[in-house]
Each structure stands twice: as C-alpha cells, then as structure tokens.
Design a protein around this nucleic acid. Structure first.
Lengths: 420, 420
DNA sequence: GTAGTTCGGTCGGCGACCGAACTAAGTTCG
DNA sequence: CGAACTTAGTTCGGTCGCCGACCGAACTAC
C-alpha cells in the first residue's frame, strides 16, 4: 500500500537538524544567533540542536567572533572528518576511489585498472575502498562512513541502484548497489557519471550558487546531467540529460546507438576527427585522433579549428534546444575534449547557442567551463551520500513546505481551528 | 535574509490535513480507517482531522459502507461546493470564465470577445468572473472562493504572476496577477496555457495516475506543458516546454520568432497547408487553411494525408528529443489540429517518435490523445488554486521528507538522541 | 561606573502526534 | 441464537520538539 507524505515530530527534527548543519557548512564559522537568523528557527531551538551536534562531535566550538556591541559570539565549525564518504569512479579503463571529508576535501586516492568481469570489478572496488580508508588511518566502520558514491557510465535506476544499461561497460541490469553493499557493509549510491559531474560542479565548482545547472561533458560521447533545485533530475525513465542522442539532423549520419543524426554522431570525438580529415583532404591525417586534432588547432591549423567550430556549432544547437525546452539558464561544460580544447570549442558552442536559443532567453543563459578538473567525478559521487546529511545549496523547499520568511499566503488552514 | 526550509507544528498539520483531504478526494467515498491506511496516519489523528473538516463542512458523512466482518464503516465524501474556484482562459479571440467545483465539475460558464487593451481585458475578466459566480447562485466571497486560475499564451513569471511576454496577445511585462487581484479581491494564479492543458489532463484527463506528463498542443503554434512529480515544471527561465521553438532542422525554414528550423515552422498549421499545396501542385488549394487540409485528409485526399504525415514526422522527432533528454514517459497530445485530425496526425507522430527515440526507451513511452476536450484549459487553470487544498495525485514527497512506508534508510539521525 | 546591547542558556507551556484502552456495531459459528 | 470474534471509530494520557519569556554573562559606549 502506497503511503502519502505525512508529517510527525521526527520529520520536523530532521528538517531542522539538516537546516542547522547546512547553515554551518555554508557559512562557517558561524554563531548560534547567526544560525537562528539564517534558518528562521528560534534561538532556543538552535541551542538545543547545536548541543546535539556538539555531543556527536559533528560540530566544534572554535573561539569567538567580533562583538556587535555586546557579548562576543561563540563560533561553530563543522568537524570535517567527523564522518567520511568515499567516491568511486568506474570508467572504461580504470577504477578510482577517493576518501573525502565532509567539506569535499580529498584525503586519499587510489586507482586500479578495470577488470573485465563484473564480479572482479566488485572485488577490485571493494579492495580499493577499504584501502583508501585504512591507509588514511581511519577505521573502516559504518558509524564513521556515511556511504560510497559510485559514478559510472550509462543509465542507473535510482530506486534499485541497478545499472540498467551501460554501453561502455557492456552491462545490462547489473545490481551494482546490492553487490557492493553486500561486500562493503556500507550504503552505496550508484549514479550516472554525467550526473556526478553536474553534482560536483554544482556543490563545489563553477555552479555554486546557481539554482539549477546543466553539466555537459564532451568526449568520446556527449553526456549531460541536469540539476534542478539542487537535486539530480532523472525523469521517469531515468535517462534525463542523455543529450548525446538528441537528434539534431533528421536522416543524418549513423550513430553507434543505431539511429541517425544524434548529436554524438555529428559532434563527438569521431566526428571531430572526420571533419578535420575531410577539410584537410587527407584521409589519414591526425592519426592520434581527437587529441591530435585539438593539438593542431591549438597550433593554428585552420582545418582542425574549422572542425572544432563545426562540432561546437552542433553542440550549441543541441544545448539551445535543451534551453528552449527545459528552460535552464546555467551550463557548465567539461569532459576531455572540452578541457583539452578550451575556448577553441567553447567559443563556437557559445555563439551557436546564442543564435539558436529563443531570442528573449539569449542573454540570460550563462555557459562556463568546468572548474574542478578530473576529480569532479569522485567528489560529485560523494555528494549523493552527503545529501543524507546536508541540504543542497539553495535547495528549494519541498512541495508545499513554507519557508518561514514569506509565511503568508496560505491562510485558509488557520480557519480550521485546533486539533481536538 | 533568505530563510531555509524548517519545520514546526504548523507544517506537520498542513501536511497531514492536505494528505487527508487528498485521500478523500481521490478515493471517496472512504472511511476513516481507509484514510488511515492510505496516509499512514494513526486512527486517532484521522479522527481529529476529519472532525476539523466536518466542522468546516468541507467533508460530509454519507451513509455507511459494507462490513468487512465487524462494524460498518462511516463513509466520508467531499462537499464539492464547500469551496469553489474559477477558471479563466484568455485566448487571442475571446475570454472564457467558468465556475468549477472541488471535484472539477463545471457549474457555470460564460464567454466574451477579447477587447484590445489590457485595461479592458481586466475589466471584462472581472465582470465575467463575478457574473459566473453570481448567476450560479453563490455569494461572491473570498471565504468561499479559493481563487482564480488564468490560462494565457506566453511566458508567465510564477513568482510575480506577470506575463513576461505573450506573442499572441502582444503583451510585454503585464502584471496580470496584480491587476486582477486588485479588482477581484481574490487570489489569482496566471499560468501559461499549455501548462494549464497539461495540468488539466494530469488531474482529470488522460494523464490520471501518471507520475509525470508532457502535454502537447498542436495548432497555430506548437506548445507543451511539463508536469514532473505532480507539479508544473517551469525551469529557471520559466519557459520550459516551449517545444514549438526547438530547432529540428539547422538552417531550416524561417519562423515567426526570427530564427530558422523551429518545430513550429515545419509542423504548425501554416506548414501543414504549405506542404499540402506543394504536394498537390496548386498554390491556391485548400483556401480554408489547415481545417480544409484536415477535412480533405479525412476524405482520403492523398496529398493532404501526406502533408499531415510530414508534420507528424517532425513533431514525433521533436517529442523524441524531449523524451531523450527529459526522459518523460507519458505524452498527451491535444490542441485544435490534433483534435480535428485525430489518428491521421497522431499515427505519424507515434511512428516517428518510435523511430527517433533512444531504442531502449521506445517501448516505454506512451502517447495518447487528450481526453478532456475544449474545457481542459479552464479546468487546468483552476488546479492552480486547488493545489492550496489538495496535493497533486501521486505527488512525490518533498525534497527529503520520508514517506512513512519505506521509513528506514535514514538512520543516522537517531544516533543524535533527544532534544534537551 | 553605569546603561544598553548581544549572546547563549533555561524553563514552562503548547500542540500535534501516537498507542492503548474503550465503545459501537457488525459477523461467524457451534 | 447467543457467545466469541472483527472491524470502526473515539477518548485519554503520554511524548517530544518548538517557541516565547526570562536570565545571567560578556561586552561596548559614554
């Protein structure tokens, strides 16, 4: 029997405790009064909740701040290693694990090559996670470890934590969450890698402070993760953001997915190389593939530049379509190709986006390069575990929940009188 | 100072009262025990809350149900006219207002031609709303009337309730919410018309029971409203769903919006007529425009049919792109052209969608015709006011709120001990 | 030195929930 | 056909998290 959202005291407490923790995380060092002002909670409630957090050693008092004309405030700070999270990235070539603090710092990191079979991947991941914790000098305990975020290519079912399908890993319905949880004894949060990228940039990178964010990765494939109101948006079919297979050219060139005219087919690594060879008129040019093309473009090769511009034109069109239909206003571009090519790719994307987006929106869309580099995947993956602790930056209130500040407008409920 | 989401007793009460009302609305007639099972609330709480609703005459006891082996249950039903809402549609030619009950029944309806100037439109709307309430024999009182939902073309800012821009009405930054509220003394909820269509079909039409829904209207323009987890998704720029200006053909035919290759330009009414004339080889054929083309298609005219098929092909491609990127699984198609042409248009759309959507998603997307006819706009508009009362069907829990059924998994909070 | 301000803590009360016990009104079965 | 059992709904007492009011400590300003 499905159960509707209802509230009880526990809900209130969870709401308020996470509000306090989040206020501390985002504004530390901060006083109790500061928290009260920020959250709208009363001073007494803040006192009580911070006491709980102090008892649990999640928060520490760290000296006192400047007086505002009276008693000096006691400042509170998060204890970043009171709890820890582990981020894992499963890529086509290798597995990486990193131990990460509550403030997003990487404390330890290790890599191993990716085995072939699923069972071995699980074993390798298990070993890496344990090693990365133990070698940093922490006990491997569920009390200390909030969980393990796992970024991997392909579509993941958020309910079961199964990898529904992953082209690159040749997976189909692999219950990766269950497999890893059985081995590790920790909560495991598998997630699409583009979503991890978007989450990482949203919490700690270029997207801090944005209300929503589209994180685009350009490389062999073209992927995107969509953050709406602080949470990953997956959609009912769990494939949201799969921009690489948006069809931008009806009856266009064939794609690995079996259809024609996908964005990936006209702007992915392979297409970039193909364009460059075509423009140059040498079918064997750029033997090193996309890396060669970008290197040549940086060295002023006009054919290579033209090729990047063409890919950027298509990507910009695809992004414009997403902006037109999803109405998002902040785009972060990363991934290998984008990182290597920088403005040589970003500039054509930007100009194409401007031309193709709905005119009245054109000047309200920001598009920026990724800020976090290669570790964004790991950090983003851990956010999934952290969200049990912290509320997303700027997280919108739930469905109907009032934020205390505005208050009014509801009204009608008061007419009902008191219970009993 | 921004205030974070926090909870207090009032929040709990609001949550639970709306849960109870919603349970009654969706499952009436229903017993108190039934509500308790449905919501997860205790019997005693349900008793208390239903007592409040009975006192307010929002709910009535209507006999008793069948025994399940013990005392017979007392059945509760909503009093559909305990509160009323008014739906308004501002279309390019006319203004319509309808008085609607809590169960979505139209009690009274009136139409007037659309005046030119904004001030006159406000006056006309004010008059219509008052008349539609008074003529039905109800007092025009804010206590009785929950509010007025207003559907209109163009982009609406949900925060201020201003019409940011409306092509068809030639509006730019019209504070329609404020203007109407000053006249009416009621809460006014302006909303994009495609969103109203989607909301109406979601609550009362073809989309009942879906978790998310994409409502597409095909006519002069092509629009769409997106319902995610029971709520309208507008996006940071408030233009979400503007599928009509998705670019499906790079450097394609010019569009009224100033760009090239928009879906509307290759599949709107004008394009349909253009195709038909081209196929037939008579530039002056089908003088009655799209209506003539569809009539001819129904009468087996091959050129007209081919023209609808071509438009459907493009629309299916556009929808496939939305499915690919937003990962929605349920599409309702309505609007004048779709209503008139029926399967002649829907069939090509369906087949094109199947071919263009990401293969693994193809058999999981449902696409159906609208169920509600012309009044969907009015009914959908009133949902906006009703949402203060009812929770959306299947509404997902707020950001972090637990639904009681699953319960577990949070865990860590319990370790904190009790407040004080 | 005194008055005023700010910070943080304590205490009592409130109110919404829940569980347990109870009443009410059926059904089942020997 | 009556006792035992079931189910529906109410009442009552208990719990717990929040809030407002008040207080002392610590600091500034004059």
């Amino acid at each position: 029997m499905r159960s509707m959202l209802t509230g009880d005291r526990q809900l209130i407490k969870e709401l308020n405790v996470t509000a306090v923790i989040t206020a501390i995380r985002e504004h530390q060092p901060i006083s109790r009064v500061g928290i009260a002002e920020l959250t709208g909670l009363s001073k007494s409630t803040v006192t009580a909740i911070t006491q709980l957090l102090l008892d649990a050693d999640l928060v520490r008092e760290t000296g006192s701040g400047n007086s505002r004309g009276g008693r000096r405030p006691t400042l509170l700070q998060l204890n970043p290693t009171a709890r820890l999270v582990v981020g894992v990235k499963i890529a086509p070539q290798q597995v990486t694990a990193a131990l990460i603090s509550l403030t997003g710092q990487i404390l330890n990191k290790e890599v191993e090559p990716l085995p072939d079979r699923v069972a071995e991947i699980v074993t390798t991941t298990d070993r890496l996670v344990r090693r990365v914790v133990n070698d940093a000098g922490f006990a491997f305990s569920p009390d200390r470890l909030l969980g393990v975020g796992v970024g991997l290519p392909g579509i993941v079912d958020p309910a079961t934590g199964s990898s529904i399908s992953s082209h690159f890993l040749h997976w189909q319905d692999v219950p990766i969450k269950r497999l890893l949880e059985e081995r590790l004894g920790l909560s495991v949060y598998p997630e699409n890698d583009a979503n991890c990228f978007a989450l990482g940039e949203y919490w700690y990178g270029a997207g801090r402070g944005a209300s929503s964010l589209l994180g685009v990765t350009v490389g062999i494939g073209i992927g995107a993760g969509l953050i709406l109101d602080g949470r990953i948006y997956r959609g009912p079919l769990f494939g949201a953001g799969e921009i690489g297979h948006m069809i931008v050219q009806r009856d266009g060139p064939g794609c690995a997915c079996g259809r024609h005219g996908c964005l990936e087919a006209v702007a992915g690594d392979a297409a970039i190389v193909q364009y460059a060879r075509l423009y140059k008129g040498e079918p064997a040019a750029y033997p090193g593939g996309r890396e060669d093309v970008v290197r040549a473009a940086i060295a002023q090769d006009p054919h290579a530049r033209h090729s990047l511009a063409e890919a950027g034109e298509w990507i910009g069109l695809g992004l414009a379509n997403l902006v037109n239909t999803v109405s998002t206003d902040f785009i972060v571009v990363g991934g290998e190709a984008a990182t290597q090519a920088g403005e040589l790719l970003l500039d054509p994307i930007r100009s194409s986006l401007q031309r193709h987006v709905f005119p009245s929106l054109a000047d309200r869309v920001r598009i920026v390069p990724a800020a976090l580099g290669d570790e964004v995947w790991l950090i983003g993956a851990t956010v999934l575990a952290l969200q049990r602790f912290f509320r997303a930056p700027l997280a919108a209130a739930g469905t109907r929940a009032r934020t205390r500040a505005q208050g009014g407008e509801t009204g009608w409920m008061e007419q009902l009188g008191r219970v009993r």
